[in-house]
Write a protein that binds this DNA or RNA. Structure first.
Lengths: 341, 341
DNA sequence: GTGAAAGCGCTAACAC
DNA sequence: GTGTTAGCGCTTTCAC
């Protein structure tokens, strides 16, 4: 274990001062060519690497952003994270990733920890519990300490910060309309995430589409349940009654479980039953039949969020910053589960 | 934007010295009760939080580990990461996550960047390209600089560091045996990852099981291809010949694509064709029929890797450290794709 | 009990 | 051109 070589080491070895070395390495015009060459060569030879910690402390800048993800096992978040990471690295920033596991307490704790000099800003999707409790005090504290925050997907409207969201209402509206246009009469709506803002918006889009088409809302066609077991039972029960001819699924589990049960019961998809779901990842394509989805452009969300944050970090006159909300358009991906011949 | 309060601020305000404040906050016995109380109260009131950067620089310790993941969209890695993060936080460490995207160059670059004081150690799964090129020089450099590394899943045998792996050979052997015991005669082996050590081991386990059963290896039953399109074509072609009655899939894509095509062609699963795959995540359960899998205990791998690394970091006499390799046992999860009645 | 001072590794204003 | 000095925020030894 050889100790890392520092500026001091180089200075001593070359009989110059530390500042000369520092300047030489940053190619300052103050330093003579000869000395520069000597320093550069010696540094390269000894594999000198500046200590990032020291530099950050000095510069009061870490070139690191903190990313708070509720659940990395959810492919949507994994994709967004991937987009964030890519753009951050591209702009010379590191990414400190923490996972709130949907817990308010952990969210608070993690953010506080990172906010003590470790990061220059946050990108975050609010934990489920936080959204349920509507406790946003920690965000306010951090914002007022001068650390910028960009929220994505699950955002707190009331907060004065940048946001990147998907047009959940519109995409649900469009998806439902699509089902109607293709002959669906009794569209069921399935959701396990009605406690999240995005879940509510999607449900409202569905309702609006039905209203527009003058179709009465039927309560028995709407299944909202956060518990996976009772949700599954209700879906199975609904499908058995054959009361529905199309399914609008608000989250990934809802879509796949509906398809699984429908196939089991003997529905022909899409002939007897059309299905559209919100989903990310390869899986919707791999199901048989492949699942039509509302694609949320997750990597783009990550990209945009990162750009917003880094602009703010790099731009120093934060005093006059005006927060903005970027809406990413979704896309309806037609696959076999809605294809009527 | 109020500036963060520092030790100096407190000292000035209370007319004591910085060192007194520092000691009071760390509850040193050197400081009198009265002063302690004053300091503690003032600090709490002004929401003092020590600057982690400064502390790290001073202590030459960051309490942060760097995690290098080849691809966070792969649910296996997402799960391992989740396990790492959980254990790290539990032990008071942060996690700096970077993604190599299977690129050797990015792997080198990221590790070098993090190794300049930002982290105390690495947990890493080697990028595909790195494993192909067999270029491990950067790992050696980092190890010899005194920074510990723990590798998982995709490891470099030759390196002198801790490793956490799954018993790939054995689990493939067992899975193949299971198919044989249940009446399979002509087991196909599908792999898109034969360039990875784990891929090779699994293939060898499959071969060994056939040899043991005195069944000749048939080349046309073994499909190895890294290109997704030609792989898909070959699988489709094989299935059409009806030459096989069971499939041993070495990676996730192989398993699901085989199932999708088999269903399309009209195979009854598992009656005409049994399928076992290596897979993680919920998806194998959601397919119809549900997919039997070799489960790799991903979170446990993350947990173990983190424990190994933190033990090494916390234990200072690294001079005499003897690297160890931990093998995590897999489990065969029987689902509908192998259930014969 | 309290404080002065040095130092972690680096930068930069200022002096020579 | 090069060096001196101070300082980022914190810890810790040593002196009073």
């Amino acid at each position: 274990m050889k100790a890392k070589v520092t500026l001091k080491d180089i200075a001593k070895e070359l009989n110059v001062s530390v500042s000369t070395v520092s300047k030489a390495l940053s190619d300052s015009p103050e330093i003579g060519e000869a000395t520069k060459k000597r320093v550069l060569e010696f540094a390269a030879l000894n594999n000198y690497k500046p200590n990032t910690l020291a530099r950050n402390l000095k510069n009061q800048r870490t070139n690191t952003i903190g990313v708070l993800i509720p659940n990395i096992l959810n492919p949507f978040f994994a994709k967004v994270f991937s987009g964030i990471e890519q753009e951050a690295i591209k702009q010379g920033f590191n990414v400190l990733a923490v996972i709130s596991n949907e817990s308010l307490q952990k969210e608070k704790q993690m953010m506080e920890m990172l906010n003590n000099g470790l990061i220059d800003g946050f990108i975050i999707a609010i934990a489920e519990e936080t959204q349920k409790e509507q406790d946003f005090s920690h965000f306010k504290t951090i914002l007022s300490s001068g650390t910028p925050i960009v929220m994505f997907d699950r955002v707190a409207e009331s907060l004065n910060c940048d946001k990147v969201v998907v047009d959940d209402f519109d995409s649900a509206f469009n998806a439902t309309n699509y089902l109607l246009t293709n002959g669906a009469k009794r569209i069921a709506c399935l959701s396990m995430i009605d406690n999240l803002s995005v879940g509510k918006l999607r449900k409202e889009g569905y309702q609006k589409a039905l209203q527009n088409a003058k179709i009465p809302l039927e309560d028995n066609l709407i299944i909202i349940d956060e518990d996976i077991n009772s949700f599954n039972e209700k879906v199975m029960a609904l499908l058995k009654t054959k009361a529905t001819d199309a399914i609008f699924a608000i989250d990934e589990h809802a879509a796949t479980i509906a398809m699984k049960y429908a196939v089991q019961i003997g529905y022909k998809i899409p002939q007897d039953l059309m299905i559209i779901g919100f989903a990310d990842g390869l899986w919707s394509r791999r199901l048989t039949p492949s699942l039509s989805t509302v694609s949320q452009h997750a990597p783009e969300i990550g990209l945009k969020a990162t750009q917003l944050l880094l602009n703010q970090i790099k731009d120093n006159n934060a005093e006059f910053y005006k927060p903005q909300t970027v809406v990413i358009k979704t896309e309806l991906r037609h696959r076999d589960s809605t294809k009527r011949i």
